[in-house]
Amino acid sequence: MGAPLDIVVIGLSLRSAWGNGHATTYRALLDALEARGDRVRFLERDAPWYAQNQDAASELPGQLAIYSDLEELQDRHAAEVASADLVIVGSYVPQGIEVGRWAQRTARGIVAFYDIDTPVTLSALAQSRCAYLDADVITGYDVYLSFSGGPALETLQRHGAQMAVPLYCSADPNRYFPEERNADFDLGYMGTYSDDRQPVLERLLLRPAREWSEGAFVVAGPQYPESIQWPANVERIEHLAPSEHRGFYNRQRFTLNVTRADMVAMGFSPSVRLFEAAACGTPIVSDAWTGLDDLFAPEKEILIARSGAQVAHWLQRIPEPMRRRIGHAARARFLAEHTPAHRAQSLHSYFERAAARRSRAATAHVTHNRSTHHEHAYVPSNDRP
C-alpha cells in the first residue's frame, strides 16, 4: 500500500444522488480512499436541485465544501488545490473546461479527469459540443480516468489523453449486502428516465408485466413522462434515497439493469446499479453489451436478456435454488474483483504511474537543457578569434 495522499475532488455532486449516479460513485470511492488513510476534500458547485434533495449527512465521506461559482472556487480553494498530491476534476462539472484549465495551472501535484460519462463525452467531443471538456484541456490532464474500458481508451488517446485508464464504479459492501426480506416484486428497475433506455425498459419489463398479470413489478426513478402507460401490476416510486437502495434490491426476486444507448454502443461501460445489485446478491437480468461478460459470467453470475419472452421465462420458470445461486455467485464475483477497495487501489496505482511518468519527463527535460547549454557554450579552439 502506497503512502497516504492529499486528494481534492471537484465533482458534480457528493451530497445528492437525485437524478444522477455520480454521488454514490464518489461516496464509495472516497470511503475506500479514506480507509487507506488518504485525506479527501470534495468541492461541489451549488445547485438548487441538489440543495433541495440532499441525502443524509451521515452518508457523506470526505470533507465537503460548496462553492457558488468559478470565482469563489478559485479564490477560496486555490491553496488546497495547489498543495494536493492529486486533484481530480469530474465530468459534468459546471464550467468544466474553465475549471480544468484552472486546476492544471494551479496544482503542483498530479491532475486527473474522472469521466463518469465516457460514451456521452466521446459522442459530444465528436460533435464539438462537450460543455466540460475540449481537446486542449484533455491534453493537460496527467491521467484520464474512464468509466469505460476496452476500445474507448484508445479513442481517448486519439483525442489527446496522455494516460487513459479504466476506473469503473462500484458499491460500498458495508451499505449493500443481502438481507432476509419478503420478495415483494418479481422484477424491479431503478434509474432516471431517459429516451434511449425507455424502449429497452418497455421490452424487458413493461411487456412481461402486461403479459403476466399475476407478476409484481416496480420501477423507481424520477423524470418519467406522465404520458407513459404503466401496467396495473407495476408500482412506481418517484425517487429512492441511497439509504433505501439496499432494501429496494432485497425486495426483488430479480432486478433489471438497462444501459444507456451510448454505453451499449461503446461497450465495457458498467453502471453503478449493476454493482449495487450484485453486492446485495440480487440476481441481475441485463441488456446485452460488449464487455459485460468480462465482469460477470453469463448464466452463472448474470442473465443477459435479448427479449421480453426470455425475461418472462426466467421470472416464471427458474427454480428457486438456481435463482439464489446466480445471486450468490454475482456477489462473490463483486467481492473478489469490484469493491471500492479495488477501485481505490487502482487509483493509487495510476497515481504512481503518472508521478513516475512526470518525473521521467522532468529528468529528460533537464538533461536536454544541460546538453543544449554545453553544446552552445563550447567553442573549438581553432574557431576562436
Rank of each mutant, 00 (worst) to 15 (best):
F217A: 03
A17S: 15
S68M: 05
A112E: 01
V89P: 02
A361P: 00
F275N: 04
R158K: 14
D184K: 14
S243W: 03
I318R: 12
I302R: 10
R36M: 06
D75E: 15
D195A: 13
P48M: 11
Y26V: 06
A216L: 01
R273L: 03
S91L: 02
Q104N: 14
C130M: 03
D172M: 05
P385A: 11
A261K: 15
H22I: 12
K300W: 01
W49C: 04
G150K: 10
I318C: 05
A103N: 06
I228T: 10
R273K: 15
L12T: 11
F113S: 03
L12V: 03
V218Y: 01
G96A: 09
Y378T: 09
A35W: 06
V89A: 07
F177I: 04
D262N: 15
R323P: 01
V99I: 09
R175T: 12
S16V: 05
I110E: 04
A171K: 12
E179N: 05
E211P: 00
D383S: 07
I284S: 03
L145Y: 11
T339F: 04
P119T: 07
V218K: 01
S271E: 01
Q345I: 00
A261M: 05
L133V: 03
S123G: 06
V137D: 05
V264W: 06
P119G: 03
D46M: 03
H376W: 05
H348F: 02
Y114S: 04
R246W: 02
W314Q: 06
F177G: 09
V87Y: 09
L70W: 13
S271I: 02
R251H: 14
V111R: 07
N369L: 12
C280N: 09
S243F: 00
P385F: 07
V200E: 06
V111W: 02
S286F: 03
A232Q: 13
D69Y: 13
L43E: 12
M190S: 12
A164R: 08
R129M: 06
L292N: 10
D134G: 08
G11R: 09
S58C: 04
A47K: 14
L292I: 12
A209D: 02
R15G: 00
I228K: 06
P94C: 05
V311S: 08
E337T: 07
I284R: 07
S13M: 01
M322K: 15
A171C: 08
A364R: 15
Q74Y: 13
L145T: 09
W230P: 01
D85T: 13
E71T: 15
G327K: 12
L315H: 10
F177D: 07
A220L: 01
R306G: 14
F268H: 15
S13L: 00
R260S: 09
